[in-house]
Computed example of a mutant assay.
Amino acid sequence: MTIDTILLAVGPMDTVRAEELADTALEIAEPLGATVVIGHAFTEDEYEDIHDDLGLEARAADVDPDAVAARRAPVGDLVEIFTDAGVDYEVRGALGEVSSEVVDMAIDVDADRMIVGGRRRSPAEKAVLGSVSQEIILQAPCPVTYFRDLDVME
């Protein structure tokens, strides 16, 4: 099986580890000439909370998710890293329930691999709050590299 497309799914909490996530994607993409899709999904509530900060006037129903994703952290940092490395990339955004939107994005771009960041949570926290990364891993249409940073959100 060849690897042509890698979906790097990120969220705003990944800002602190953007370089490490990019390095993980580059380890695969560079030698294979694969394209990295930087994917950022967000809920309507998240969009409504940040749209003023991004200088956007559109309400959630009228927004272009790709344009919003391109303006959210850590996407800009990742774009810079992939540009400097000479790796093909594209930015995709999605508005809705994050885990299902990321899985749908992987299907839409025909991802051969996914890279997903997560954070350390106790079993009780997972039971109460759920785990977006766990849902993505369980529903993914391709193999997933799970990047856990123990320092994020402690």
Rank of each mutant, 00 (worst) to 15 (best):
T2S: 13
T2Y: 03
D4C: 00
T5E: 01
L7P: 00
L7H: 04
A9W: 08
M13F: 07
D14Q: 01
T15Y: 00
V16M: 00
V16L: 02
R17L: 01
E19I: 00
E20Q: 07
D23A: 12
D23V: 05
A25Q: 09
L26T: 03
A29C: 11
E30D: 13
E30N: 10
L32H: 10
G33F: 10
A34K: 10
A34S: 15
V36L: 08
G39H: 09
H40T: 06
F42K: 04
D45M: 07
E46L: 05
I50Q: 05
H51T: 13
H51N: 15
L54F: 11
L56Y: 14
A58L: 10
A61H: 07
A61M: 01
D62F: 12
D62W: 12
D62P: 06
D64M: 02
D64T: 06
V68S: 02
R71P: 01
R72E: 01
P74E: 00
P74R: 00
P74S: 03
G76N: 00
L78A: 02
V79R: 04
V79E: 06
E80N: 03
I81Q: 01
D84H: 03
G86M: 03
V87N: 11
V87G: 08
Y89A: 03
E90F: 00
E90I: 01
V91C: 03
L95Y: 05
L95H: 01
S100N: 09
E101H: 07
V103H: 01
A106M: 02
D108A: 14
D112P: 08
R113D: 07
M114E: 05
V116C: 06
G118A: 14
R120W: 12
R120Q: 15
R121I: 11
S122L: 09
A124T: 15
E125W: 14
A127Y: 15
G130P: 11
V132S: 15
S133G: 12
E135Y: 09
L138K: 11
L138V: 08
A140V: 09
P141K: 04
C142F: 09
C142D: 05
D149E: 11
V152M: 11
